[in-house]
Design a protein around this nucleic acid. Sequence first.
DNA 1: AGTTAATCGAGACGGTACGTCAGGTCTTGGC
DNA 2: GCCAAGACCTGACGTACCGTCTCGATTAACT
Lengths: 202, 202, 202, 202
Amino acid sequence: MTADHAKPRRQHTGRRRNDAAREAILDATFDVLRDRGVDGLTIDAIAEAAAVGRQTIYRWWPSKGAVIAEAMARRARAIVPVRDSGSFAGDLKSFITDSFAGLEDEGMRRALRQLAAAAQRDEHAAQVVRDFTAQRRATLRALFAQGAERGDVSPAADLGMLVEMAYGVLWYRTLISHGPLDAGAAESLTAHLLAAARRQVR
Amino acid sequence: MTADHAKPRRQHTGRRRNDAAREAILDATFDVLRDRGVDGLTIDAIAEAAAVGRQTIYRWWPSKGAVIAEAMARRARAIVPVRDSGSFAGDLKSFITDSFAGLEDEGMRRALRQLAAAAQRDEHAAQVVRDFTAQRRATLRALFAQGAERGDVSPAADLGMLVEMAYGVLWYRTLISHGPLDAGAAESLTAHLLAAARRQVR
Amino acid sequence: MTADHAKPRRQHTGRRRNDAAREAILDATFDVLRDRGVDGLTIDAIAEAAAVGRQTIYRWWPSKGAVIAEAMARRARAIVPVRDSGSFAGDLKSFITDSFAGLEDEGMRRALRQLAAAAQRDEHAAQVVRDFTAQRRATLRALFAQGAERGDVSPAADLGMLVEMAYGVLWYRTLISHGPLDAGAAESLTAHLLAAARRQVR
Amino acid sequence: MTADHAKPRRQHTGRRRNDAAREAILDATFDVLRDRGVDGLTIDAIAEAAAVGRQTIYRWWPSKGAVIAEAMARRARAIVPVRDSGSFAGDLKSFITDSFAGLEDEGMRRALRQLAAAAQRDEHAAQVVRDFTAQRRATLRALFAQGAERGDVSPAADLGMLVEMAYGVLWYRTLISHGPLDAGAAESLTAHLLAAARRQVR
DNA sequence: AGTTAATCGAGACGGTACGTCAGGTCTTGGC
DNA sequence: GCCAAGACCTGACGTACCGTCTCGATTAACT
């Protein structure tokens, strides 16, 4: 007698979608991604970690990349708000420092790398990455625009370029150079961005 | 009789390594990568496109990523030399414009994206990417150092950060935002970098 | 507006078992079995053809084989009565001819083959087959016993064996050799059975 | 260190088909069929029992039924030779007794039932069953023809029917009635067949 | 000149993951 | 309580690639 009856971990919801299963899948995806990397991220592994049938994953997501993307987007939600420190320099520094801080965990960086990799081959993941990063860029761009109103950013400055110089460093260090994203890096980047914004050369 | 015997496209080299086969593999890898993306890039596909046995690939490269990396490095060789225009601003602009120009072909960008994706999961590809980009950074850093000697770059400037701001934009636009890498973008980036380098704010 | 709302083909019976649903299931089972063979005979297919929920099938039958068996038994009911022609030879010939005639439809033969196949793997179907064939054997055996009383069957004859020689041919031709089960075959079999019954050798 | 290197159970044959693998698959199929029945006979189970990759099975057989059929045919080979006892009655009795004896093992009967079931749904298995049984029928028919020459079988007898009466009993008892196939049954069947063959009634 | 040795194209092999399909269980909401 | 509907977990299916192995051929280097 194996006394295996203590199994109903999750409530069945009958003919309606089980949202608990959905969340379990997304959580499991993130966990597997962080702990085992992308090679260990098989649909089977997700299904097993989420205690879910494989079909349940295929029923709701069109591809593995879509699951990864949604799992990641779920974690990145509500991070890096714009803070009002009274000065443009302060606001920018806070924003960049906070953005970097969100990646201080190696697991998070690893997951982000996998997401970027997935986006190169999976259209669904690519869409999520596109939307997510566009929204982040818009936020930072608004901050620069605010700086322009205050006179801290030259009217001749290319705000889009400034934004991509900032996020470029963040992603480049995450994906390519594996350079640090600590407070010092944030400070240095902020200083150079301020200089770049202030005076447009020629 | 099917007269199919007119097949020996490539000379057999006996017990010595057949360099023609090696090149066929690298060419085929790049072609498949560009034309079919990373999902179509199977060892079988490379072998078939190169008219080569699979074992011949495994004999000379430790992993698929290594093949991709070498195929890519082969194409990127000898691009973006440092030109001496007489002024730091001119040199920087040339460097960045040339760097961007190397990616004006969509096929090249696609291949680069696949390389970056491969580097996230394949140690051999990662190593090649690491080495290649480190070398590029060193080149650009030397250019900034030369600018510092001329007084165009502030002694307080963080040269490493400036370098990554430049390459960050290049990779960010390639991998994430898919923004343009044309002459206008190069000019804007150059201008902002010059400003960032010239005056270190606090 | 697709005007698809005109769907209630069948009356809902509320909390009492809906016998119309039961019959729809059995009919659908037989139809699917005959038309699409056993590979097309999925529970889903039956449910869809009967316009019934899957659960309704599982509520009333323990297995697919049980449904098949009941669907078949329903069709085979009240066939092949014993006729009294006045002579044993005439009675036997009628019985065999009628038995064969019940299988002149290819759909019926196909369904019977599927039933036999189901009985090899499903205990419920096996039970139905066992009961049904035992009843048929008993009927034929009674006919032989009657022949023994009349002196047309030797007292030394093995009635059980004679019965299985008859049904053996019927099933063997249905399942294995696909030989004809027409009037000529019935006549030949009858003649040989009469000879076999009349004189027990040694 | 797991010392797992003692693995090469079977010799690799390179680019040529490995006949040892083929035989291992057929053996494993028969074993699984006999031991676990048809529900346990999955391709995975065969592959695992044969220590073979699933693809190796799919490479050489078009369907599961084809594997079953070949595995069975392999076992049934060279059984039931025609023996020359000097008399037709003796030869027939030997043949039937030997045929029955080949099924005295319950595992063999079970496997045969599964083969018959497979033949109802799989064209490849059906073909093998058709060929195999046709060959057996031809052998027995030749025996009856020889009896006709000796005068033990009436010229008016329907040899084909006699053959199917014999094999009908064998298969009917195996598939349907599960009656005994022992020496007594063989003797009874032989006696009735002799009577049926000797005198054609009417 | 004959032998040895390494490469090559080819393709079978033991595996792993894929995405699909069917089975049998469960719950909802309507009747 | 019965019913249609459909989500759920499970597990087999057949396919695609992986990386390894062996073959027979070809040629270069060594005897």
